[in-house]
Each structure stands twice: as structure tokens, then as C-alpha cells.
């Protein structure tokens, strides 16, 4: 294992489901290599398979074929529990367990001290006082940020974020974007983030992957994929987003 430099690669990752007798490919033969320190944006129309792809990477779902390699090893060599603490996943609709904010953070990492909790809250732009709040009293945006803090509590080396700013105001959104960029660079994380806002992908810089109907149709520097796409699907996606 290479110390400190996380690597993640997908090869021919495929996942299909059969519903009502018809087979649907959710993730279609995706191969890609991620390097740490970079933020990767995943974009594509609704139903393109963005969430499905993230679920495969932290093994909440099992691929039908293909492989995920984490730090140059087949990810199945790690126990699912261990893998998921290395590869954190933030759900599209965040869920907090009934109880307080600090209970939620300690559910992820039991050994957290009060000051570590304050530190995590600070990272996502929340006051330390929030720690004792009951989760039922939080706003949607606060919940989303708590879920983000909880994800960081296990100190993952890969973070999979499914539209982490969907219920945030522009100021908090910028804050989270900065946080993602900063921790990706400082800790050399692989950050993969689904977004439906092309401008967000451009702001984050890094690379963008465009998914259409489960296939990876275009990838490259975010600016280029989103503003000057090379593929037909890429141009169609750009047109869709503009209209």
C-alpha cells in the first residue's frame, strides 16, 4: 500500500437491474482512475446513474461485473465495514439518527472528544453550540452540514458526495465547496461529488465526468467538459442545461 497517496480506480464497472422482466443497465462499463488531491464532479441528466455509481464505489451495492481498486488492491479484500470507513458516502437525502448532533457524530466515531466535535462542526460552518441540539430542531441545510461533518468524523480517504449542497443557500454552498477543495488538497483525499449544477463543477475545478444512461460519455477538466464538450452527448447535455 502506498503510504499517504490514496488511489481509486474503476474498471469495467457494470450494474444492471431486472424490474418487471426488463433489464436496465444503471452503470454501464465504467472505467476511470481517480487521483487524490483532486475534486471530481459527476454530472448528467436525472436517472443517468450518478447515485448508482457512488453506491457501487463504497459497496452499498454489488456490481454485476468489473472491479473497484482502492490503493491498488481489489476493494473486496477489505471488509465492507473497513472499506466504508475509508470510502465515506454522503447520501443525496441526508439522514440523521434521532437524538442530538453529537450523538450522531459519535455514532460514526465513538471516540470523538467534545473539542473534536467542535472542530468538525466548525469545518462545516456551524457553531460549537449546535452539538447539543436535537436533530429535529435543525433546518434542512443544517442537517446536510451535520451529515457532512459525520462523514468526515471517520477520517475517510475517499469522500463520495451526492449533491451535498442541494438544500443550502449560496453562502453555505460556497463554504462547503471551499471545504471540499481544501480537505481534498490538504489531506490528499479523492473527492467525488455529484452535482446537477454545471457552474458548481466549474467552480470546484478539477475534473468532470459526464454520465448519460449509465455510460461515462465524456470526462476531462471541468471547464472543458461543461463549456466546450467534445462528444455529441456532452453538447446535448450542455444544451439541456442552458435551456
Amino acid at each position: 500500500m502506498t503510504e499517504g497517496h490514496t488511489t481509486l480506480s474503476l474498471s469495467h464497472l457494470t450494474r444492471a437491474i431486472t424490474a418487471n422482466g426488463t433489464r436496465r443497465v444503471l452503470v454501464d462499463d465504467i472505467s476511470y482512475s481517480f487521483a487524490c488531491g483532486t475534486v471530481y464532479s459527476v454530472v448528467g441528466p436525472s436517472g443517468a446513474g450518478k447515485s448508482s455509481l457512488l453506491r457501487l464505489i463504497n459497496r452499498l451495492d454489488e456490481p454485476d461485473s468489473g472491479e473497484v481498486r482502492y490503493n491498488d488492491r481489489d476493494y473486496r479484500e477489505l471488509s465492507p465495514q473497513e472499506l466504508r470507513r475509508h470510502i465515506g458516502y454522503l447520501f443525496q437525502t441526508p439522514y440523521l439518527f434521532p437524538g442530538t448532533v453529537s450523538e450522531n457524530l459519535r455514532f460514526a466515531e465513538a471516540s470523538l472528544t467534545d473539542s473534536q466535535i467542535a472542530g468538525l462542526l466548525d469545518q462545516v460552518g456551524l457553531e460549537p453550540g449546535v452539538a447539543s441540539a436535537d436533530v429535529d430542531t435543525l433546518s434542512g441545510g443544517e442537517k446536510q452540514r451535520i451529515a457532512m461533518a459525520r462523514l468526515l468524523a471517520t477520517q475517510p480517504s475517499v469522500i463520495l458526495l451526492d449533491e451535498p449542497t442541494s438544500s443550502l443557500d449560496p453562502t453555505s454552498t460556497r463554504g462547503i465547496e471551499k471545504l471540499i477543495k481544501r480537505i481534498a488538497e490538504e489531506r490528499c483525499l479523492v473527492a467525488i461529488m455529484v452535482t446537477h449544477e454545471p457552474e458548481q463543477a466549474v467552480r470546484l475545478g478539477g475534473e468532470t465526468l459526464l454520465l448519460v444512461k449509465g455510460r461515462l460519455v465524456e470526462h476531462g477538466p471541468s471547464e472543458q467538459v461543461l463549456n466546450d464538450p467534445q462528444s455529441d452527448e456532452g453538447r446535448r447535455y450542455k444544451g439541456m442545461e442552458l435551456s
Partner: peptide, 11 residues
């Protein structure tokens, strides 16, 4: 979602 959230946190 509650179950999968716990699983995703390594439970």
C-alpha cells in the same frame, strides 16, 4: 435510508 446510512458509516 436509516439502515443504509448506518451501513455507509461502517456499521
Amino acid at each position: 435510508l436509516a439502515v443504509e446510512t448506518a451501513l455507509a458509516l461502517g456499521k
